[in-house]
């Protein structure tokens, strides 16, 4: 600790090239003077943490919705046509919002795209249905769960994290849906499931990026997924409710509370971050 009362007649300097007459293990009062703690620390407020958690919660709900559509088709809980119409209607609404509010796209080209999609997937449905038929159902379920987890891990929420990979997250989600599709009974069911999956994992993310941290959108998906689970099983409903509460309330609370343990020290020993700017054209 510092001892200010002690007279230090020859002032110690932080240099190595001079023998200053101090013992080698002398520790000056300026020791660790340049130590900085928690530079650039941004204290998260509870509302910030919740709004961030809502993004994850929304994406989990999207995945859950696809899962629910699968269960509904598999167990014949609803009419597949009704599901297809609902999905198409919502996709259309989303498309209209996207085109009018955010980015203008050529409607003609998009119509061509939809038509070719319908033709290709209708033709491919019988193949897709039998593609993984020989693999055991448990393996299929495990694979799709892992793929969906992969989708959630690499999804581009709104962070600039290095783990984000749009291609990886889209592909793993679609692969997971394909695996599930092989357990369905008819070609039309496969077509419906794939259409739902494509609209959720390919068409939805750009729109969601535009919406950002919108509470309404997140709540819409959460509630839809929650209602869906209610019709499938009571247990699933309770678990899903618990998941939503934990994710949206408890975890943000813990994050905010545990911020006080954050102790990030930095000082002159840190590796300098090279700033490579253009060399300014200076006068000679």
């Amino acid at each position: 600790m510092a001892r200010p009362c002690q007279p230090r007649s020859p002032l110690w300097r932080k240099v190595l090239y001079e023998n200053q007459g101090f013992p080698d293990n002398y520790t000056d009062t300026t020791f660790l003077y340049e130590l900085k703690k928690n530079v650039n620390l941004r204290i998260l407020k509870f509302s910030d943490a919740v709004s961030g958690a809502r993004l994850l919660s929304r994406e989990i709900s999207v995945v859950a919705l696809v899962g629910e559509v699968f269960v509904a088709l598999h167990d014949h809980l609803t009419d597949p046509l009704l599901l297809l119409l609902c999905c198409s209607f919502l996709t259309l609404v989303g498309y209209v919002i996207y085109v009018t509010k955010y980015k203008y796209r050529s409607i003609f080209l998009d119509v061509v795209l939809v038509c070719s999609y319908i033709v290709i997937v209708t033709l491919m449905s019988p193949i897709l249905k039998t593609l993984t038929k020989t693999i055991s159902t448990d393996t299929i379920y495990l694979t799709s769960v892992l793929m969906m987890l992969g989708h959630l891990m690499f999804y581009d929420y709104d962070s600039f994290s290095t783990t984000v990979s749009k291609a990886l997250s889209f592909n793993s989600a679609l692969f997971g849906s394909l695996c599930l599709a092989s357990r369905l009974n008819s070609d039309f069911d496969v077509f419906v499931l794939l259409t739902v999956a494509v609209s959720c994992f390919a068409l939805l993310p750009p729109l969601m990026t535009e919406f950002g941290r919108s509470n309404t959108v997140a709540s819409f998906f959460d509630l839809t997924a929650l209602t869906g689970t209610y019709f499938i099983s009571q247990t699933a409903f309770l678990f899903y409710l618990a998941e939503l509460l934990t994710l949206n309330l408890s975890i943000p609370y813990l994050i905010v509370r545990w911020q006080k343990y954050k102790e990030n020290i930095s000082g002159p020993w840190d590796e300098a971050k090279p700033s490579i700017g253009r060399v300014e054209k200076k006068r000679r």
């Binding site: 080698d24 020791f31 660790l32 020993w269």
Partner: peptide, 24 residues
């Protein structure tokens, strides 16, 4: 080997500063 090195070592290893000498 330097005073900065001493500060760094004391922080990293959490040892007492009086058992650390600086010899360049």
């Amino acid at each position: 080997v330097s005073h900065i090195g001493k500060e760094n070592t004391v922080l990293r290893a959490k040892i007492k500063h009086n058992i650390v000498s600086v010899i360049p």
